[in-house]
Computed example of a mutant assay.
Amino acid sequence: MQLDHLLAKAQSLAYRISAEYNGQPLPDDRRACAAIGCLTVAQQHHCGIILLLRNDMPVHASAFALIGPQIETAFNALWLWYCATEEEITRYLSDGSGKSMRQLVTQVDSALAGRDGQEAAIVRGHWARLSDFVFSGERRIRRWLDANEVDALYSEEAVTELVELSNSMAELGLASYRTIHDKHFTAVRNELARGLRVDQAK
């Protein structure tokens, strides 16, 4: 029952994030566009995990398989926004970052260290679980070997851990989207206001 409640909350979070993303104009900036594109894909992985787990016949192995891409894509977005040079952005748009998940997480963690703001707080708050997944290697096979019989369903504890980590990555993505969106559109509003003042002064 506790897991059902957690999954219902996860689905509500997914709807809320999708509503905030959908229909918004893209900024006229390739760094921002690339990062937002990654965040959208990461959010799709979050939705996929929820759908697979809430199915009448839950598909646990496939849900677990999506958490890696969700983390990697979310941290690609953060890396593009906070770390990548212009040359690296150009390379990313044609060939990807070429970085491992471990490298992405390490560089982003370094860039956010000492910063205020929701992104840094989320990374710090979930660092133990995140680093356990990223730095401890692949653990999905071990989940299958913990039981004494063949069973397609993972333990409730394992699924709960997955959903909590996926939710934290979704919240990180939303915080990053707001950072990018607010920075860009604040600049646009300021530019429009300056233009209006110039026109009024003529």
Rank of each mutant, 00 (worst) to 15 (best):
N190F: 02
R189V: 13
L13V: 13
L53A: 11
G195V: 06
A10N: 10
R178Q: 14
A187S: 11
C38M: 12
Q11H: 13
M57R: 14
I122Y: 00
E149Y: 12
L130G: 02
S168M: 11
G114P: 10
M57T: 07
L66F: 07
E88W: 05
T186N: 05
H5Y: 09
A74V: 04
A121H: 08
G48M: 06
A193Q: 09
K9M: 11
K9V: 11
K183F: 08
L53V: 00
I17Q: 00
L66D: 11
R142W: 01
A8Y: 10
L51N: 06
S168G: 05
G68I: 02
A14M: 01
A32G: 11
L130T: 01
S131M: 08
R91S: 15
V188R: 01
A147H: 09
V134N: 06
G48R: 01
S168T: 10
L13K: 10
A61C: 08
L66N: 13
L52A: 15
V105K: 12
K9G: 07
A42Y: 05
A14H: 01
L196D: 02
R91H: 15
Q44T: 13
R91Y: 13
A42G: 14
A128K: 12
I71R: 03
V41D: 07
T73R: 06
E88V: 03
A121M: 07
E164H: 07
M57S: 12
S166H: 03
V163P: 04
L174M: 05
Q103P: 00
D4H: 12
Q44I: 09
I17V: 15
R178L: 08
I67V: 15
E161F: 01
H126E: 09
L153P: 00
S131E: 02
V105R: 03
I89L: 15
C47S: 09
L78H: 06
A74R: 02
G125N: 04
S12F: 10
D151Y: 04
V105M: 05
A42M: 07
W81Y: 14
L51W: 01
A158D: 15
N76H: 14
L172M: 13
E87P: 00
G48V: 00
E86W: 00
L192P: 00
N55S: 15
I67K: 08
L145E: 15
W144Y: 13
D151F: 04
G48S: 15
G37H: 06
H126Y: 12
M101V: 07
R115W: 04
A74E: 04
D4W: 04
L7W: 09
A77I: 07
L165Y: 05
D56C: 00
T179E: 10
Y82K: 11
V150W: 08
A120E: 03
N148T: 12
N22C: 02
A77D: 07
T160Y: 06
A32V: 04
R142A: 08
A152K: 07
V123H: 01
D95V: 10
H46T: 01
R143H: 15
L145H: 10
S100L: 09
D182I: 06
T85L: 10
H181Q: 12
A19K: 13
I49A: 14
Y15R: 09
N167A: 14
F135K: 12
D109A: 12
W79S: 03
Q24F: 07
Q44P: 00
I36R: 06
R31K: 13
A128L: 04
C47A: 13
A14W: 01
Y154D: 15
Q200C: 11
S176Q: 12
D116S: 14
T73W: 03
P27I: 02
L53S: 10
L165T: 01
C33A: 11
R16W: 02
